[in-house]
């Protein structure tokens, strides 16, 4: 009997440790980026609006990752000695784009226009979480179809004050 309990305890403990290690180190929710960019410093402490860097959020299907020129525009002057900024300068000198790892990655068969959502009055934080407090960007929402449908069926009234038109139609989002 004692042995059985021991096995169970060891099993549960192993599972818990493994699960956490997996969630922290091997999950795609917060990948390790080529440059340790902190949204907390930029959007939180310095109050830079989201749309200053992600300029296409209200104009296109994708929100857009800023080009290196935009980063360098400020960091020519600001905090040039920091090791992470040195990496940025290296990319700039080599004329290479920074290979950011996409955190909010949707499958190929999904049509998600940022434009439509931003113009409808959905805040960035509704889906992306409180980015201004994240040192390492983490994906807070599951981005699964059920999660999308939560709003598209009846949850939208609380967010944008009206129901989504044709929200249930498959071809609204699939392509």
């Amino acid at each position: 009997m004692k042995k059985v309990i021991l096995y169970i305890v060891v099993g549960v403990a192993t599972f818990a440790i493994g699960y956490n290690v997996n969630a922290v180190y091997f999950s795609d929710r917060s990948p390790i980026q080529p440059i340790a960019f902190s949204h907390k410093i930029h959007a939180g402490d310095n109050n830079i609006p989201c749309m200053y860097c992600h300029i296409y959020a209200d104009k296109s299907t994708v929100a857009g990752v800023p080009n290196v020129r935009k980063c360098i525009g400020c960091h020519k002057i600001i905090k040039q000695d920091a090791p992470e900024i040195q990496k940025l300068t290296d990319y700039w000198n080599r004329k290479e784009p920074i290979p950011w790892i996409k955190v909010h990655n949707l499958p190929d068969y999904v049509y998600f226009p940022h434009k439509r959502h931003v113009k409808a009055g959905v805040h960035c934080q509704t889906c992306h979480g409180d980015v201004a407090k994240m040192d390492v960007l983490t994906r807070v929402s599951s981005l699964k179809m059920g999660w999308c449908l939560d709003c598209h069926t009846n949850g939208a009234v609380a967010i944008i004050g009206r129901e989504v038109k044709n929200g249930k139609d498959c071809w609204t989002c699939h392509k």
Binding site: Y109, D169, C170, W171, H174
Partner: peptide, 15 residues
């Protein structure tokens, strides 16, 4: 395959 709002007969590949 179903009919959508625009009178189109559409095919959902995922289903």
């Amino acid at each position: 395959t179903y009919h959508n709002q625009d009178g189109l007969n559409v095919q959902v590949y995922n289903r």
